[in-house]
Nucleic acid binder design. Structure first.
Lengths: 360, 360
DNA sequence: TGAAAGTTTGCACAGCCGTGCAAGCGGGAG
DNA sequence: CTCCCGCTTGCACGGCTGTGCAAACTTTCA
């Protein structure tokens, strides 16, 4: 296209007209009257510089507003300090909380987070990883979707490490962080039974993310093991609106459920609202509900939803720790984390007698 | 510290042991049997390469999984394609929605978003901008906090453009995006009056962000102009919990308000829950509430909150458009956007007679 | 005072890319 | 056959940093 010729000569004092070149170590060296290497060493911890030179350099750097160029530094070093977060549907309570935790901890570890959004259609996880590769990210954290084996291999060959959060497959040279979805789902079932509920149901979305599937399947399987029947309804995308629709579909049935396990808190909120507003039911007297994620809204007065708390901080900490540690090679690593049950008031107190938890 | 010597020689075929150098244009050139310049030109639109050479290069690049290094490219070009988003409290409905919109549109414009989190204490906006500078971001979008003039000047000198979203001050060489907070607050007041409410109140947090202050002040001033008294309560951080506390404080007063303008939807939800659960009030019969932001929860069945819809898409579009346009110089630019009223069911229908909006 | 040891500094190169410039190559016209 | 023109291609440089190596300088010790 347009040639965009860069005038190498005149480094005028006036604030830049267009390109506005940023100040480099050469500029600082010139002003301080030292070599460029001296500037570089001043900003390299452990390098040998005399106090006098250091002072001159820092003074000049301050006057010019110099900041070391991490991009150029990333060329020689094998690290850029960039970590890509690949995520869809960021504006969701759980996702945004996870991203907040990750960015915070990454910063504390001296890294910086780059967000790659896969909301648009198509084969976007692959595109996202290629983008991460182009910026030579030290690692990529995958929160949504799952890369093909071939793409993962491409990352591996280019020295980009992968963090898989609640993804199914294991990949070489990557760490896999998983939450105990299956066990939690079984706990939910037990909680319902202990509360005396018998007409059980599951409400979930049509999104086939590994976590949602695991929660649904475990609940169903455990029920079948115990010889119980469970009504399962699946609808739409993961979110409040789908929860509303799911509630209507379930509660209109002849054998109306008295307990619904929702694979997500957002769905649970929708189900609760449907039960109350459209069917005049009261919770937990007429209907017990359990969700998953423990998003902020689950604790709101209007819901007081019993759910499972995602170990967001621990997950983020484990991910960042593994990224910062750097060293390890090809062996895939796996970390299991536990979502703990959070009792609130959306499950009715046990009728059978025995241990009814959490009165307050 | 440790010397980290990089062995320049052996480029072994085996998957890397530690550093795992990523594949460069030189590698592709070697495999394709052409010069490195040919590789570069193949990936530069509009450059002159023969079909045959291009084919060989693309083949080799594909075999090796080559991706152009945007960091190195950023050295020669004056653009890195990186845009820094400086934000605190990302895990909040409004903020995360804004970040989602920004990242999506940035990507569509061929840029990439870098998140810099200012949740930690201290003078972090300055630190965040310095970090953005170190990565030679083309622009920085400031969603939280306000940089000192001196820091803004530093960015300006280094050719980093600034986007201020709902910030007070105007700065040279930056664009300022503002929403009509003041006008909206006046509309809220009028809506209350038209509904027949007379005991007005404002609930806000102690955070002194420009938007919140503008909403509060405009409401109060307009009321004073009309000779009306308004009870104003201020408490805690911006969020649901503060809303709950604010509701309790306001509703326990001798002259109990019959209308509360909340500077944020999260606060509004808290106030509504306090009114219902702790005081047994019904909304809007006993209490009318108006919020701000139109977060997803405002549309939930349990709230049906009348509020003001933030022009998130328009804001993000305007920001990205300005960033992508690039060209313009020192003249500060300002764009005004309008938050439009979203009628739901948290304001009682007018009693006076005349124009009562939104029946359904 | 002279030599040895230690510190500091500059040079030059590597890391990766884009691109101006000139040389090479092929083809068409006279 | 020769000349000219257009397209390709390689060389070399610039952009910014970190760092090994050797030279210069300072300090210490005999």
């Amino acid at each position: 296209m347009t040639a965009r010729k860069i005038s190498g000569g005149a480094r005028a004092e006036g604030t830049g007209q267009g390109g506005a070149k940023s100040v480099s170590a050469k500029d600082v060296a010139a002003l301080a009257g030292v070599s460029r290497a001296a500037v570089s060493r001043t900003f390299t911890p452990g390098a040998s510089v005399s106090a006098e030179t250091r002072r001159k350099v820092l003074e000049a750097a301050d006057a010019l507003g110099y900041q070391v160029n991490h991009l150029a530094r990333g060329l020689t070093r094998q690290q850029t300090g960039i970590v890509a977060l690949i995520v869809a549907q960021l504006a969701t309570p759980y996702r945004s909380a996870m991203v907040q935790a990750l960015t915070g901890k990454l910063q504390a570890a001296g890294k910086v987070a780059m967000i790659i959004n896969t909301d648009q259609e198509e084969a976007t996880v692959e595109l996202a990883l290629r983008q991460a590769l182009r910026y030579r990210a030290d690692a990529a954290v995958i929160l949504s979707g799952m890369p093909d084996r071939s793409i993962a291999d491409l990352c591996h060959r280019n020295g980009q490490r992968l963090v898989l959060i609640n993804r199914d497959d294991s990949l070489p040279g990557s760490i896999q962080l998983r939450v105990n979805d299956a066990q939690a789902a079984r706990m939910a079932l037990l909680a319902f039974l202990r509360a005396g509920c018998r007409r059980l149901a599951v409400a979930t979305s049509c999104d086939d993310t590994p976590s949602l599937l695991a929660r649904e399947r475990s609940f169903l399987e455990e029920a079948r093991t115990l010889g119980l029947d469970v009504q399962c309804e699946r609808f739409g995308a993961t979110g409040y609106a789908s929860g509303l629709a799911l509630g209507e579909r379930l509660l209109v049935r002849p054998e109306r459920p008295d307990a619904v396990f929702c694979t997500t808190d957002l769905i649970a909120c929708g189900v609760m609202d449907a039960a109350r507003q459209r069917f005049g039911l009261s919770i937990p007297a007429d209907l017990s509900v359990i969700g998953f994620d423990d998003i902020p809204q689950a604790g709101w007065e209007a819901y007081q939803l019993t759910t499972f708390t995602q170990p967001i901080e621990e997950t983020a900490a484990a991910a960042v720790d593994w990224i910062a540690r750097g060293e390890n090679g090809d062996v895939p690593c796996r970390v299991d984390l536990t979502a703990t049950m959070r009792w609130r008031r959306s499950v009715r107190a046990g009728q059978v007698g025995a241990e009814t938890a959490a009165a307050s």
